[in-house]
Design a protein around this nucleic acid. Structure first.
Length: 166
DNA sequence: GCCAACGTTGGC
DNA sequence: GCCAACGTTGGC
């Protein structure tokens, strides 16, 4: 996978994490400063969290099912993939009754806030950017909640946000 | 609220 | 393993 290759050469990777603000919003992250990204229950996204998302990687925090639809913040990975314990907790809304403690099916990472966008970078504004036209996020039916982002896309979004971040 | 685009489930 | 039915995601 391209990301593994990038890792071997020591490069930083970039990701987009989706969240419905009703479940967990950028303001929740501003309050918490750091959080575990629990509740991912899709195998493709799980594989990324388990194998590819690494400490120091950049994360775009995106509000889905919200107004406005937008990248609303920047975060950084501070802990790499480890078992998502909410899968084993019957009291959790993310409980997975089929989950086996001996062989965890679901993984999460920890992220910390880097910055809340001064202005949200809206989906609408992103759709007008040629440099972003290939973003998975903007493709029809792209439901993956953990998505790879290219450096070019990352840089453009930082520019749109008016942020001077690596 | 609609519905396309998925992913999952389960009968066979 | 196939695939129809079903459930979910998420933009519109």
């Amino acid at each position: 996978m391209a990301n593994k290759k990038a890792r071997a050469s020591g490069k930083r990777s970039y990701w987009l994490f989706k969240s419905e603000p009703g479940a967990y919003s950028i303001d929740d992250l501003v309050r918490d400063r750091r959080t575990c990204w629990d509740g991912v229950r899709n195998y493709e996204a799980r594989n990324l969290l388990r194998d590819d998302v690494k400490i120091g990687d950049g994360v775009l925090f995106y509000h889905s099912n919200a107004r406005p639809l937008a990248v609303v913040g920047v975060a950084e990975v501070v802990r790499e993939g480890y078992p998502d314990y909410t899968a084993l907790d019957p009291a959790s809304k993310y409980h997975d009754p089929k989950s086996d403690p001996e062989n965890p099916a679901w993984f999460m990472v920890d992220i910390k806030l880097v910055a809340k966008m001064p202005q949200p970078v809206t989906r609408e504004s992103m759709m007008g950017e040629v440099a972003l036209k290939d973003m998975m996020l903007l493709r029809r039916g792209a439901r993956l909640s953990i998505q790879p982002v290219s450096k070019r896309e990352w840089d453009r979004i930082m520019k749109l946000a008016g942020l001077k971040l690596g």
